[in-house]
């Protein structure tokens, strides 16, 4: 015995009905209008359809709104904030290293060195200069941890916004590509040659002015399929990857369907590129 969406509900509670429409289940359909009238949920079939419409409209409206809120612009903000935090943490860490070197003579570098100062492993002195430096080092650690949290947020949300693009590129590169083109829609509308060079605009314009070699890849260089491919084949790898990423972005924007086959097609294409010429390594 399965229940219809209305079973046990207060007829006036549209919100509860909408939740049931969204989350309920049944193996097979039944004559729900008649069942609802029998159960006293509605007086007649006409009223049944009115209530069903109110519930399905509210349920679908809520589900669509929820998906829109996890939208591409939120992802753009998050990935830009992450980049800001990483850059700021690195800049401040350099300052900490320079200052620390002058006080303790030990040459460290990066966020790791700042963390050691913040935790008192280096220069655990009580002078006011020690305290000021330690406080700055603590800020570096905080900002760096903020970048990690933003990265985790992007890894959680990118697959909902752009499932196929996230599958092929990884969530963070997917978010960066969306951010560089301004949104998922504009990314979906760009030719794959543009996607290939997103993030390499400076190099591209240097090339167009003359003299400089043409860039083969932009931010997609961070993808293992480009950076891990032999230099002579990197242009081909970047072009092939960009082509698949463009298709993925279009599917994500226009249909939202998941296409697991894209990954297999990309893997096969890369295998062919990497195995041709050279020694196959």
């Amino acid at each position: 015995m399965t229940d219809g969406w209305f079973a046990g509900l207060d007829p006036d509670d549209t919100t509860a009905a909408a939740e049931r429409v969204a989350s309920g289940r049944a193996d097979a359909p039944e004559d729900w209008p008649a069942t609802a009238v029998d159960a006293g949920y509605t007086a007649d079939t006409e009223e049944y359809y009115e209530r069903l419409r109110a519930a399905t409209m509210e349920a679908t409206e809520a589900a669509v709104t929820e998906r829109e809120r996890a939208d591409d612009q939120q992802l753009v903000h998050a990935v830009r904030a992450m980049a800001d935090c990483e850059r700021t943490a690195n800049e401040l860490a350099e300052r900490v290293a320079e200052w620390g070197g002058s006080r303790y003579g030990e040459a460290g570098s990066g966020v790791g060195y700042a963390r050691r100062i913040a935790e008192g492993e280096v220069g655990d002195g009580g002078e006011s200069g020690d305290r000021a430096l330690r406080s700055l080092a603590e800020r570096v650690v905080d900002v760096s941890e903020e970048a990690d949290e933003l990265r985790a947020y992007i890894e959680r949300t990118a697959p909902a916004v752009a499932p196929n693009l996230s599958m092929l590129a990884g969530p963070v590169l997917a978010a960066r590509l969306i951010s560089l083109s301004g949104g998922l829609e504009s990314l979906a509308k760009q030719p794959s040659g543009t996607v290939q060079l997103l993030g390499a605009e400076d190099a591209l314009f240097a090339h167009l002015r003359g003299g400089a070699p043409s860039p083969k890849h932009g931010i997609i260089f961070t993808h293992e399929y480009v950076s891990g491919t032999r230099r002579e084949e990197r242009g081909s790898a970047a072009r092939a990857l960009a082509g698949k990423l463009s298709i993925a972005a279009r599917i994500d924007h226009y249909s939202g369907d998941r296409r697991p086959d894209l990954q297999r097609e990309l893997d096969e294409r890369m295998e062919r590129i990497r195995s041709r010429g050279g020694d196959g390594e």
Binding site: D3, R25, D27, A28, P29, P33, Y49, L52, R53
Partner: peptide, 26 residues
């Protein structure tokens, strides 16, 4: 659907009929 009272919109996966069989009649 706003213009038509006889449309019941459902954000569901057609590959999972059990997720809407509690709403859709024969």
């Amino acid at each position: 659907a706003d213009h038509r009272p006889n449309i019941f919109p459902l954000l569901k996966d057609a590959r999972k009929p059990e997720s809407y069989a509690h709403v859709v009649e024969p």
